[in-house]
C-alpha cells in the first residue's frame, strides 16, 4: 500500500467475492483493496480466475456473494432487506462509465474511425459537445502516439495501434480506474513494447490501475503491488520485488519458476 495515499477511501474495495459458473466455483472469496493512484498487477496460472475477477470489478460478470465497492459505491448490487439484489441497468452503467477497461482482443468498434471510437462514449453517454469530444480525442490519440491515424478504421491499424486506440477510448471518459486484461497477449512480440510504454506512462501520471498480465518485467518495474492468484483465491500479495524474489508459498514459487524459466 502506498503511504502517501494515507487513509483515503480506496478506489476498489472487493470483499470476500464468490463467483460460480454453474457448479464451478471460480472465485472462492477474493478480497482486494486498491488505493487511489495505485498500480496493482494480478498474476497467476491460466484458469486461476484473474480475468473473471477483473470482469466482476465492472460487473461484466455477476457475483454470487461478497461485495465490490468502486470509490465507495457498490457496483451491480444493492442490499434490500439484508439480501443482495441486482441493481438497475442505468446505475450500473453510470459506475461503469467511471471505469476504463482494456481487453485482450481490443474490441474496437470496427465501423468507426479511431477518432469516432474515442468520441463515441463521451458524446453518447456523457452528452459532451462534439467539438469538445473531438479536441479531447485528438489529444488522447496524440498522447498514445497515433496523432497521424485519426481517420483510420481499426482494420487499417496494427494490433499495437488498435490497442492504443482502445486505451485512448477508455481514457476519454476520464475514468478513475483502469482495468487491463492481458492487454498485450494478443500482440506480436515486437508490438508489445509500444503498448506497455503507454501503460507505464499512465501509471506514472498517477492513474489507478488493475493489470492482469504475464509481462513480468512490467509487473516488476511499474506495479506498486503484485497479487498472485491461484485456484480462485489470492495466494499472496506484496511489493513486486518481494513477491518475485521471496515468494512465500509453494504455488507462487512453482508459477514464478515456470514463467521466469
Amino acid at each position: 500500500m502506498t503511504e502517501q495515499q494515507g487513509t483515503a477511501r480506496p478506489i476498489v474495495e472487493a470483499t470476500d467475492v464468490h463467483k460460480w459458473f454453474q457448479r464451478n466455483e471460480v472465485l472462492r472469496g477474493v478480497s482486494l483493496q486498491v488505493q487511489r493512484g495505485e498500480v496493482v498487477v494480478i498474476i497467476g496460472p491460466s484458469g486461476s480466475g484473474k480475468t473473471t475477477f477483473l470482469r466482476c470489478l465492472n460487473h461484466l460478470e455477476k457475483i454470487q456473494s461478497g461485495s465490490i465497492l468502486i470509490d465507495g459505491e457498490s457496483i451491480g448490487y444493492r442490499t434490500v432487506d439484508g439480501r443482495l439484489k441486482e441493481d438497475n441497468e442505468a446505475s450500473i452503467a453510470k459506475i461503469r462509465a467511471e471505469i476504463g477497461m482494456v481487453f485482450q482482443r481490443f474490441n474496437l468498434f470496427p465501423h468507426m474511425t479511431a477518432m469516432q471510437n474515442v468520441m463515441e462514449a463521451p458524446i453518447h453517454v456523457r452528452g459532451v459537445e462534439k467539438d469538445e469530444a473531438e479536441a479531447r480525442a485528438r489529444d488522447l490519440l496524440a498522447k498514445v502516439g497515433l496523432g497521424h491515424k485519426l481517420e483510420s478504421f481499426p482494420a487499417q491499424l496494427s494490433g499495437g495501434q488498435q490497442q492504443r486506440v482502445a486505451i485512448a477510448r477508455a481514457l476519454a471518459m476520464h475514468p478513475k480506474l483502469m482495468l487491463f486484461d492481458e492487454a498485450t497477449s494478443a500482440l506480436d512480440p515486437e508490438l508489445v513494447g509500444e503498448v506497455l510504454k503507454v501503460m507505464q506512462q499512465l501509471a506514472e501520471e498517477g492513474m489507478t490501475m488493475v493489470v492482469v498480465t504475464h509481462e513480468m518485467g512490467f509487473a516488476r518495474n511499474v506495479a506498486h503491488r503484485a497479487v498472485f492468484m491461484d485456484g480462485g483465491v489470492i495466494v499472496e500479495e506484496g511489493p513486486p520485488a518481494e513477491v518475485f524474489e521471496h515468494p512465500q508459498h509453494e504455488r507462487t514459487k512453482t508459477f514464478l519458476g515456470m514463467v521466469q524459466h
Binding site: N58, L60, E89, A90, A93, K94, R96, A97, E98, I99, G100, M101, F103, R105, N107, L108, F109, E120, A121, H124, V125, R126, A166, R169, A170, M173
Partner: peptide, 16 residues
C-alpha cells in the same frame, strides 16, 4: 460479444 462488452464498459446501456 466483445462489442457489447466494450460498449457496456464505456457506460452504455443495452439499448444505446
Amino acid at each position: 460479444v466483445g462489442q457489447m462488452e466494450a460498449a457496456k464498459s464505456l457506460g452504455m446501456t443495452y439499448g444505446l
